[in-house]
Write a protein that binds this DNA or RNA. Structure first.
Lengths: 113, 113
DNA sequence: CTCATATTCAACCGATCGGTTGACGATCGG
DNA sequence: CCGATCGTCAACCGATCGGTTGAATATGAG
């Protein structure tokens, strides 16, 4: 029997499949950033980065909050956690070190609000 | 500075982004299977499944070995492990429970040949 | 008010994706 | 040998992707 598909994973993995987007995530790991600052190190247009950020936001991997005229981008590790849960637990195996991974995320990223 | 891109991850995450391919991986978790048997529960052509399997093989998530006229598909957890390593360690953080995860894979899938 | 900055929108482009169909090569069984 | 089975190949299709440009929309600064 085919396992029930988890539609959220499609977007998360598709978002992770692009090296530009993974680089953006790495940058956001260090700090929240404005769209323009995210775009600065890349050799592509601001509009392209804006699209990448929209894809990341749609997948849940980041959130975006507009304060004034600048839109701040913030890493959202929950989506990454879901993908990792699938990786470790897809199939019938117990997610043995899931608790440890969650603790890792808590420690690194702070408690989820 | 933008982190060096890891090209293998593109293919792995792209492969994981499709629900059909994830379902195939789940099926292969239980047992090695022939292409026709993989295709059986899906409502699409054999050629489509053959393509999906080729994509999974190109990403390294599975391997295919032709014995006689049937081609056997086998899960290759190494690629999944690489992706999981990136997830837990992307950025500068130490992969705290990577060892535990590798041990988990060893236990569940057996030692790598 | 005016000008600059921050970001998105809209249209467009070539490339790739996920799927189909039909023909084809290889291999097995009788 | 013959016919059925296993799997891929090739061409095609519409849809989506990743990128570009140029115009448009806020918002902030002076």
């Amino acid at each position: 029997m085919i396992p029930a598909p988890e539609p959220g994973l499609d977007a998360v993995f598709a978002a992770l499949a692009d090296p530009t987007r993974r680089a953006i995530l790495s940058m956001l790991l260090e700090d929240d950033m404005a769209v323009t600052d995210v775009a600065e190190p890349f050799e592509m247009s601001l509009a392209a980065i804006s699209k990448h950020l929209a894809i990341l936001a749609a997948s849940g991997l980041i959130s975006q909050e507009k304060r004034g005229r600048v839109k701040w981008c913030k890493l959202e590790p929950d989506a990454l956690k879901r993908a990792s849960v699938w990786m470790q637990g897809f199939g019938q195996f117990e997610p043995v070190n899931l608790d440890a991974f969650e603790a890792f995320l808590e420690r690194e990223f702070g408690p989820d609000p």
